[in-house]
Nucleic acid binder design. Structure first.
Lengths: 204, 204
DNA sequence: CGGGAATCTGACGCCACGTCAGGTCACCTG
DNA sequence: CAGGTGACCTGACGTGGCGTCAGATTCCCG
């Protein structure tokens, strides 16, 4: 689907143990370097040096830096799956509110763990890159759809409401650190966003 | 504040009529090209060719492509000011709901008019560029603060709630076109987001 | 131990960047 | 209107990362 598999190099040859290890080290270096700079300033030569290999080696496994980040984004995206377990059953009352808190908290933990890759994924998706859009959708669509199933149809469009809530949660997860300087603690953010989610989902 | 003035070239000389016109044409070309590609693929040589001048001329006015986009972002950011007029008075009841609708609609109109520049502004801000963060904050902080003043303190942190709502509105304005293919029309988005905003602002 | 596949890399042509010296243009002044 | 001053423009160039390829090296298996 991504045009990138785990088992083949770009020239089509089978990947052995050594090749797989090199590929992994290149990915890890890419992920690490992405935390200290934007993708625009991430040079193949830097990644190669970090791994202790030559730039030409990088091109054995990835077409360009973007493609390496795409692989990372696909890997990371799957870690949002556990959030789906919260989006089941009855969301009315205090039990639902607690689920909302855990959902919001889960978003923040997810983002804190993979901030650099997720930021870059959304950036590329927003710039129109279809591959990154697909990866982003694969990660968020199940959450959005599960949430939409919980929103009662009425004045609100379930799809629009679920999309809006996911957008809000994702954005707050991405930004919550900046809010501290404005006087909103992490706990404030979780509680407030959870309240908005819960009220939207349970209101008539 | 931006380290970029309207009256001086980068070498410090005074800008005359011809220089100001060239600078403006470079900015317009940058804005236009930004609509068909991401900033990563926007070359100085393309902007120069579009204007019918040489790359060296570009560097008379801007340090790099990013700086030209920064100027555009600062210009565009000021157009969000009219939204502040809606964030006054009483937001209870149907009058408040109508204000919410206009606020959400205003966000969407704003984004539809300046999608490329706003997208790039947020992208650079998210990547940590402080200059773009400042420009983004200058545009959104007044809206966020005005909204926070309307949210009654209680279970919700006004600051967190206002930030979350602004995040939601901005994101929906950026994404609403993609939602059409999921079955949520522009009208659905406006109404649904307006409802969420209104309910959050008026609930106990 | 031989051989073939997998893996790595030095070397290279290409292109955009960003600078600078020097040329051109516009306006003002006498 | 001639001359000159400063604003404006650009051709030419050094730099550095990109992406490729041929050939060298390493690994693994029979």
């Amino acid at each position: 689907m991504l045009g990138v598999t785990e088992d083949l190099a770009l020239d089509g040859r089978q990947l052995g143990k050594r090749g797989a290890a090199t590929r992994r080290r290149l990915l890890d270096a890419t992920s690490q370097l992405l935390e200290s700079r934007g993708i625009r300033d991430l040079r193949v030569v830097d990644i190669a040096r970090e791994v202790g290999t030559s730039p030409a080696t990088f091109y054995q496994y990835f077409r360009d830096v973007e493609e390496a980040v795409l692989v990372l984004a696909a890997e990371v995206g799957e870690e949002s799956a556990p959030l789906l377990q919260l989006l089941t059953g009855d969301w009315q009352g205090p039990v639902g509110l607690e689920k909302a808190r855990r959902l919001v908290d889960g978003f923040i933990v997810f983002w804190d763990a993979h901030r650099a890759v997720l930021r870059t994924r959304n950036l590329a998706a927003q710039e129109g890159d279809q591959r990154f859009r697909n990866v982003r959708n694969s990660s968020l669509r199940p959450v959005t759809e599960a949430l939409a199933r919980i929103v009662p149809p009425g004045e609100l469009s379930p799809i629009a409401a679920a999309s809006a809530l996911v957008a809000m949660m994702e954005r707050m997860a991405a930004f919550h650190i900046d809010l501290e300087s404005l006087g909103a603690s992490r706990a404030d953010v979780v509680e407030t966003v959870a309240q908005i989610v819960h009220r939207t989902v349970t209101a008539s």
